[in-house]
Design a protein around this nucleic acid. Structure first.
Lengths: 351, 351
DNA sequence: CCGACAATTGGTAGCGCTACCATCCCTCTG
DNA sequence: CAGAGGGATGGTAGCGCTACCAATTGTCGG
């Protein structure tokens, strides 16, 4: 019986290549996926046929037949947030020239959306999954645990990995900057936070721990909102914080965008930095060291986290599970002009 | 003959659902894709079976059988550049709750990489393609023309669309800001550009056109590099520009990151803005209106371009090709404090 | 010199779904 | 009341590829 006319628009198939090269279809398949299992002569012959016909394997057929797509599903809460943009860049760069593809999903910081996307991703049988954070819903966690592929949780570390994990402690990050500001002589150190996703919450917890340890904690110093972060929001929240506590002498911002907004607002209100008010951010975007004055921040290795997450996933796909399933990348406090106030004539503590 | 044991890990298939619902497999398929072609009773019955079994269609099988994947391929030159991050956000938002998925590719501003990714994307038979810019290589263009699916070129418009197009004229954008600065009384208006991709080149062309029209053009006013843009690079290039032309009285920056770097450097060097030096950026990121002083920029509808590109692609997929295949979104000049210098006692021209 | 064994190649039978066409049943027309 | 026409449903045959196993060849130790 005559086969029905090609639906796919006449693109050559593996059978065409096999015919042209005078070999079996399966050998062509092997030559493309595991060249070392095919003799050099045939390999060469097949390569010529592939070039001549302009053959490109059909990923859909391949995925169906092998019950595994060459796709790594990646779930991030935001694509415009520079932090995740950098993570994603690291992920793409970590792919190198593998045949793997990335399937990106944006959860918009919503656990339900994460569940939904996980369902969708799973329906493609991905080779691995990368998800952001450690606060999956129970349903999402169940999906991850029965995913049947390597899973990497990124950006944070916690006690109970689904599989693998790479990130750092946001609580310790928050604690470190806050402590630094206290040591610089600031007493009324405020916290300004937008979005307040779980990672922000933990930065706040670190702030609170440091403030309480110094006997300086006061709820009224904390100004947060669930509104998405932006530079202009930093400006607004700083105004709010000052209105609540006019004696505020420093602010630790949730992230660098807010810190920049605070800087501009302080400039506008003619509040001298760092003498009148100290400013610190989080993530250490490029602009922080260029700003005038330069802004203290916590450098987070987000690009590296993306790269390494892929490296871990690739190792696991290849069956070589890394020795360390949980990797703490740490962070680095970048103390700069915006918090360089010397307390009561004392020199700041040596590093 | 007994079928080989399930490779897919025992997930239910359409046949399982059909059996459970007491209907044919094809009816299940239809109930899921074109519910209106199935009677309400069966639809209901099938829905129950789907829920009971937790059935999720296999995208790979679906794509193979229908020779069409529910995927829209999107090629952007960068993921960290806020502009494209916003475009991508618009694209994801434009998807709504369709079953469509986005496949994102990062060309790193390379035509060759664009070709390679196009090959890869085409091997999945995407439902549509969205590509950035209008400067595809001949090979990439050929691939697009024979893609057999709707194609949307975004961010720019030009005379020769592959299929559909949505964007604005970067040349006109550059011309508009430059003219604005000249009208504000600046004479030695410099151009600072990083990356210098085709769109930047056209902004420069617009700058040049405006400067020449005013008899002010001088090559030495132009400072560019192919290095990727950043705030710190803005700082450096501004220093370079001043070293070349110490009488420089304004700069039009390629983009807002550079403009921010210039602002900080001007602050640092105690050059008053806007009296001593005027500053303008491009794209109008949120921070531009918050900055102190606020910075003049050109607002570009990048989020909207992403949304509309998807809308156009969806219409075309559904067979309803939009009336306007080429959409000019325009742009908006946002004149702010950073260029508010009154020329020689004259009031600035009314808007 | 023979059987064992590895290396290389090929045939067959699906993977899970949908395009195509056939069938069935109902309603409507003349 | 026969026949036409249309809507709903189902069967069959692949989509292009790979898993599994069989077949063939060459190599080696005993």
């Amino acid at each position: 019986m005559k086969p029905r006319s090609r639906r796919g628009g006449g693109r050559p198939t593996i059978a065409d290549v096999a015919r042209k090269a005078g070999v079996g279809a399966i050998t062509v398949s092997r030559a493309l996926r595991e060249p070392e299992r095919v003799s050099p002569e045939l390999r060469e012959q097949i390569a010529r046929a592939v070039d001549a016909l302009g053959y490109v394997p059909d990923r859909n057929a391949r995925a169906l037949a092998s019950a595994r797509a060459d796709v790594i599903g990646v779930l991030v809460p935001s694509l415009t947030n520079n932090v995740f943009a950098e993570v994603v860049r690291g992920i793409y760069d970590g792919l190198g020239d593998t045949h793997l593809q990335v399937q990106l999903g944006n959860t918009h910081y919503s656990g339900l959306e994460e569940e939904r996307l996980l369902q969708v991703f799973l329906s493609q049988k991905p080779s691995a999954l990368i998800v952001s954070g450690i606060d999956q819903t129970p349903a999402a966690r169940a999906l991850l645990e029965s995913a049947g592929c390597p899973v990497v949780q990124i950006m944070e570390i916690g006690p109970d990995p689904v599989d693998m994990m790479i990130g750092f402690s946001h609580l310790e990050g928050g604690r470190a900057v806050t402590r630094h500001m206290i040591e610089a002589g600031y007493r009324k150190v405020g916290f300004i936070g937008a979005r307040m996703d779980p990672r922000s919450q933990r930065r706040l917890a670190g702030y609170r721990a440091a403030m309480e340890a110094a006997g300086l904690y006061d709820v009224r110093l904390v100004t947060t909102t669930t509104t998405p972060s932006s530079v202009s929001l930093g400006q607004e929240l700083f105004r709010d914080a000052l209105a609540k506590v006019p004696t505020l002498d420093a602010v630790f911002c949730n992230n660098d965008d807010l810190a920049l907004g605070v800087l501009f607002e302080a400039n506008r209100a003619a509040l001298a930095i760092p003498s009148k008010v100290g400013i610190a951010g989080f993530n250490d975007l490029d602009m922080m060291h260029v700003a005038f004055p330069s802004i203290t921040s916590v450098r987070t290795p987000r690009y590296e986290i993306g790269r390494q997450a892929i490296a871990m996933a690739r190792a696991a796909i290849a069956g070589k599970r890394p020795a360390d399933l949980v990797v703490d990348t740490g962070f680095e406090l970048m103390a700069r002009e915006s918090t360089a106030r010397h307390p009561d004539g004392r020199r700041p503590p040596a590093p």
